[in-house]
């Protein structure tokens, strides 16, 4: 049986007076890629933000390696081994590429070998290492956001829609980078709208709708079952018709 690295049980999140998550139950096994799929507004980003403590869970439990992190502040959650790539990338535009990576390396210094590995995944970053990050193209900014997350090994990587709005060649670059990260034994929880990318990377999958997990299982099963895909992807539409 695979060990659960991260688990959410009955997690509710309110943002202001809005009830966003309605009892999320999610298990992310150690090692491999868990895809979090669902339509826009299903609660995927809210789930990642709740895990990171950026939005506080109003009920339920979030455990990481068996430890309850539900009420911990965001810096403590990050220091317990989580790396987060938000949907809007949130790179520091006024800082150089190098400075962005230096900040992400909590140990103080960037490990030279790790940096070479990152440059191997994203060669553009080496070329623009001393350039202000705000001057990068959209794809390069996404590369930097991911590089910042992986510049040091972490227990779990939370990545929110890394291929959104990118050109096909850059999407292919991203998929290849995540494959290599996965091959290194990393655990990744990946939110994705691009089903082809999800099929290429995912080991397990959870599908969200209306702030809940409505399906969880092996990615391969979902990839092969067109009816299931149709049912899950069309779920909300059916319900709201």
């Amino acid at each position: 049986m695979t060990t659960a690295l991260l688990s959410l049980s009955g997690v509710h999140t309110h943002v202001g007076r809005y009830h966003i998550l309605h009892g999320v139950d999610l298990v992310v096994p150690a090692g491999g890629v868990t895809m979090l799929l669902g339509r826009n507004g299903a609660g995927k980003t809210s789930t990642l933000r709740t895990i990171m403590g950026l939005w506080r869970a109003s009920a339920g439990r979030v455990t990481l390696s068996g430890e309850d992190v539900t009420q911990r502040p965001t810096p403590a959650i990050a220091r317990s081994g989580l790396a987060y790539v938000p949907e809007n990338m949130s790179i520091f535009a006024d800082l150089t590429v190098r400075e962005n990576l230096v900040l992400a390396a909590r140990s103080g210094e960037i490990d030279a070998e790790r940096l070479r590995w990152v440059f191997g995944l994203f060669p553009a970053l080496e070329k623009f290492f001393q350039l202000a990050a705000g001057a990068l193209s959209g794809g390069q900014k996404q590369m930097l956001a991911i590089a910042r997350a992986i510049i040091e090994p972490r227990t779990l990587y939370l990545v929110d829609e890394p291929t959104k709005g990118l050109a096909p060649a850059i999407v292919a670059n991203m998929i290849s980078a995540f494959r290599e990260l996965k091959a290194s034994g990393a655990t990744i929880l990946l939110v994705e709208q691009n089903f082809a990318a999800a099929k290429a990377l995912g080991d397990t999958v959870a599908v969200m709708d209306d702030g809940r997990i409505v399906h969880a299982g092996a990615m391969g099963e979902l990839a092969e079952d067109v009816d299931l895909q149709h049912r899950l992807l069309g779920l909300s539409l059916d319900r709201h018709q």
């Binding site: 810096p75 535009a93 400075e99 900040l103």
Partner: peptide
Amino acid sequence: TRIGLLIRAGVENREMVEALGYDI
């Protein structure tokens, strides 16, 4: 300095600085 970098980054996006593990 590292603290200077953190201040500059925090001025830009304090939420992301926290998500990197620093207490803003």
